[in-house]
């Protein structure tokens, strides 16, 4: 298996495990599944990539290696009612699960300088923001029954995921970057099927799943690496930009145009954030030759 380590490089790893592999798995699995089961396509796509990137998770999860897969499991259990198509779900279970996850992965550098109170605050912060964000984006994704449609499409979730991947990679965690890249690639695969069959119902729970993984990996960037968290927080504006652009009188005759506008608005914010991060990074790098 030694040859496989060649593919662990930043560029190869991102191209293969952060994009091609999850896109292919997501595309093929979604092809054969009815839309209500598309969360399975996302899950299969990211499990394949996460396993390759992080290996089998340990239980209880004690290291950053275990975060992605255990976090995916936590998200699936928390969001199970949504994924099963029920209109109502209780976020309390999700809060409990993610608080337990946050508690168990609490890293050494925080433990050294803080007490149990901070341990609890960080765990609660992780769980409330993760479940809260997942709930918000899922709510914004739902079709409105009456009045003008103002909702979040999958197209608007892909650009901030790629920007977060950039922030994570620049912050010293290539694998977390590749992990959120894998989520974005799986969503891109679903988006193709949505555009081919625009009259079907929107898949439920997939947006919430993205929201939970996005927030969890952003937190991981702070807990285990050096993510620029101010810029990462700005990425939350990307879905909002997509929602706002819904209010503009733009031509939306075809779902492709719909996705285009939503994705474009989100991409503007995401590109700005990623651009600032890359510019800051290059400026810092320019002081150090030969790296």
């Amino acid at each position: 298996m030694d040859w496989l380590t060649n593919w662990d490089d930043l560029i190869h790893g991102t191209a293969v495990f952060g994009a091609t592999l999850p896109f292919t798995i997501g595309f093929l699995v979604a092809w054969k599944l009815p839309r209500r089961y598309w969360w399975l396509a996302v899950t299969a796509a990211v499990v394949g990539s996460f396993l390759w990137l992080f290996g089998l998770p340990t239980f209880p999860p004690r290291s950053s290696e275990a975060v992605a897969l255990t976090g995916l499991g936590a998200a699936l259990v928390s969001l199970a009612p949504l994924l099963a198509g029920r209109p109502v779900w209780s976020p309390v279970l999700g809060l409990a699960i993610f608080t337990a996850l946050g508690w168990s992965i609490y890293p050494a550098w925080l433990q050294e300088s803080g007490g149990w109170t901070r341990h609890l605050i960080v765990s609660l912060g992780l769980s409330t923001s993760t479940i809260g964000f997942a709930t918000l984006v899922e709510g914004a994704h739902r079709e409105k029954q009456d009045g003008p449609t103002c909702r979040l499409s999958l197209a608007s979730l892909i650009p901030p995921s790629i920007a977060l991947a950039v922030l994570l990679q620049l912050g010293g965690s290539a694998r977390f970057g590749q992990a959120i890249g894998a989520v974005a690639a799986a969503l891109a695969a679903l988006l193709i099927w949505i555009l081919r069959r625009p009259n079907d119902d929107r898949p439920k729970g997939v947006t919430a799943l993205w929201g939970a993984l996005f927030m969890l990996l952003a937190w991981s960037g702070w807990l285990f690496a050096e993510i620029r968290y101010g810029l990462a927080a700005l990425l939350l504006l990307a879905p909002i930009a997509s929602l706002l652009v819904n209010l503009l009188p733009l031509p939306r005759r075809h779902p492709l145009l719909d996705a285009l506008w939503d994705g474009f608005a989100s991409a503007l914010v995401s590109a700005l954030v990623a651009g600032i991060a890359i510019s800051q990074y290059l400026e810092e790098m320019s002081e150090f030759e030969g790296y």
Partner: peptide, 21 residues
């Protein structure tokens, strides 16, 4: 002797100093 490289070495890709000091 390269601060940027040292930052990267401390991070999750290499020494993971936040987890394993």
């Amino acid at each position: 002797a390269n601060e940027k490289r040292d930052d990267h070495l401390r991070n999750q890709d290499f020494f993971k100093v936040k987890e394993f000091p």
